[in-house]
Design a protein around this nucleic acid. Sequence first.
DNA 1: ATGAAAGCGCTAACAT
DNA 2: ATGTTAGCGCTTTCAT
Lengths: 333, 333
Amino acid sequence: MLKIQDVARHAGVSAATVSRVLNGRATVNPELAARVHAAVRELGYRPNGVARNLRRRQTTLWAVLVSDVGNPFFTSLVRGVEDGGRQLGYSVVLCNTDENRAREAEYIAVALADNVAGVIISPADDSTDISALVAAGTAVVTIDRELAETEVDAVLVDNEKGAEMATAHLLESGYRRIACITGPRRMSTAMQRLRGYQRALRAFGLPQDRSLVRHADFREEGGYSAMAALLDEGVEMDAVFAANNLMTVGAVECLTEREVAIPASVGVIGFDDIPWARLFRPGLSTVRQPTYELGRAAARLLADRIDNPARPATRMVLQTELHPRESSRLRLG
Amino acid sequence: MLKIQDVARHAGVSAATVSRVLNGRATVNPELAARVHAAVRELGYRPNGVARNLRRRQTTLWAVLVSDVGNPFFTSLVRGVEDGGRQLGYSVVLCNTDENRAREAEYIAVALADNVAGVIISPADDSTDISALVAAGTAVVTIDRELAETEVDAVLVDNEKGAEMATAHLLESGYRRIACITGPRRMSTAMQRLRGYQRALRAFGLPQDRSLVRHADFREEGGYSAMAALLDEGVEMDAVFAANNLMTVGAVECLTEREVAIPASVGVIGFDDIPWARLFRPGLSTVRQPTYELGRAAARLLADRIDNPARPATRMVLQTELHPRESSRLRLG
DNA sequence: ATGAAAGCGCTAACAT
DNA sequence: ATGTTAGCGCTTTCAT
């Protein structure tokens, strides 16, 4: 491997000058700079990023910890982060925690050891411990989910409002007995979406019925089982609001399997879009989250935090959008 | 930041001993080792991975270059790589090239600068240049797509066989005028799938009709436009085989929009599965690729190549699976 | 089995 | 504006 000294010798300048030219951090005689560039080209020199990172005591790497890369929500989000980071000169390491706290902790350790410049994390749950990162002075942005006790930058979606919109939409379509399949109690998003659902019912003057509310695991199987339980228990119901995309799919599968007509017998709306939802049978009504933008925003925030470690924590809240399709269209009369 | 010297001082041993204990690379007096571990715990010491990488002249990082993270095919593949890598102690950097050769080249440069241990790449096209990686001695595995001139490990799918299966399935269902929407000529996968389609027609004793074959870009829009062109040109056709998942979706959208009945008027089958394809209207018939396993295999191959740089290049070919659903079910009579 | 010392390749003080 | 020098934190000879 060629080193900067080799280039310096070849160009007849000092290593410091080569470094200055390559990093553009100081003014260098154009003639010398040209010689350096020539030497670099002739020798085929490539800077060693690892050595640079050691010396500078920071890398140009971001770690993104998401709980499920298989979920299109996170895919799109990661893409936003990656595009944003790339523009600012960062590379993005994708870490898939699988909603598993041990794996999450492991990745945090790796991020620390590798001196990543920043971490964007969608915490596995409420109790995710990012104190080591904070203690080490690593820039952190939480995304999608909120952390209980920690003062860090956060990029969120207005979950309560989105869930309220979804539920209100079902109400306005004529549904009255609306079930809610939400996520685990320890997840901020699950609770906020539940609250939005409840708020819509209240605003409509309808009673809260506990038997209509189910907590599942944000996975397809969870949505399926919750839906199955609602049906098996014979809970009176004419629509369902599922609090994320995967559970919506699960619920729809269950309904389809049992030949419950959507939207005639049971209306369906889901939080968070699903790719090609319009091609489903029936087309799925959803509340779309600005997933890509969430990632972009997190990237901006992280870069800013890296440049400016002292500034107070920011909390960005993005809005959702209602996408009514066939699954929530009650045929009245 | 604490360094190994601090731990050494605290434990009353040399830095070399601390390193030996931490890396388990040499036998150390158990009593000393215990003191080291205690010191590490008491001080909250974390090794600096960057310094280690510089000294060892290699990292524990893999770069995965895929052309579209938004495509579920690659998502699943990346997941396989990541799981495989993690088990072997590697972290995975995800790089999204967007089918863009400039971005791809950029990422290759970054991979080189950061001294990644290995690269798994799904080349943007035939002419992707990985010679710099090979020259630098970086372990490389190509995945999904084949590279023209280069002798590197490859993990592939039996595209020709899969496409043949898909086409034969349409033929057996009673379709006779089958269109083929495949990818760009410069991509090995596109050409192999086209050949499979042709082979099936030949085996069935049917003529090749050039007007039935279209080259698109492997994206949703491409599938849509190709389908639209086929319809607009009035090409006589009763089924279509689309050579990847996104184009299948595009083609279906076009047919749906124009109210062409699937599968009655035009049967559809796609190469590569789509998540929740069974929930589509109609359920999409597909040829499933073992995406996750592709990633796992690539991980194994890469790790092996890193440990054993001299061994000859391997070519792994995985098989596909036919998943017939409603979109290819011709109602005869 | 342990310690001392050199050096991975780069950049940032400092000196000129 | 340029060169000299030290050192980032670790591992690995080499000597003991």
